[in-house]
């Protein structure tokens, strides 16, 4: 099963260290080159699902001044799911790149034959 893009970047953002919700939003934005603007409603729906599936867990909580930050940590299952997704993406990219090279070569040959 393919990981949706927000899920993919949430997992990716947690590979190095546990992050809180806002940290995940920032990291996902940076990692996607500004393309993915996670909004809190979407983010927490995804975090709930990922926690349910055991792909991430709460690492610790920080409660200061009526604010609460929960830090999420990638589990081994989460890392494995991400690795599998990366492998799929790599395989797909390889196939597509090979087809494109083929197309380029065929086009050149045609032009050359004229």
């Amino acid at each position: 099963m393919r990981l949706p893009e927000p899920t993919f970047f949430i997992l990716t953002s947690l590979t190095e260290q546990p992050l809180h919700g806002y940290g995940v939003m920032q990291a996902a934005r940076e990692l996607s080159g500004g393309r993915l603007q996670l909004r809190p409603g979407t983010l927490y729906a995804a975090l709930d699902r990922l926690a349910e599936d055991g792909l991430l867990v709460v690492d610790r909580e920080e409660a200061v001044d009526g604010r609460l930050r929960r830090y999420y940590r990638l589990t081994d299952d989460g890392a494995a799911a991400l690795a599998a997704e990366v492998e799929r993406m790599r395989a797909d990219a390889t196939v597509a790149a090979a087809r494109l090279r083929h197309r380029g070569a065929a086009g050149l040959a045609l032009e050359g034959g004229r």
Binding site: G21, Y22, M25, T42, L43, Y44
Partner: peptide, 25 residues
């Protein structure tokens, strides 16, 4: 509380109203 914290962390300086996209989300 956690969601509210994240929303406030994400708010711009001096922002007084939620962004429309955030509200819909």
């Amino acid at each position: 509380t956690e969601l509210l914290t994240t929303l406030l962390d994400d708010a711009a300086e001096g922002q007084r109203r939620p962004r429309r996209a955030d509200a819909l989300d």
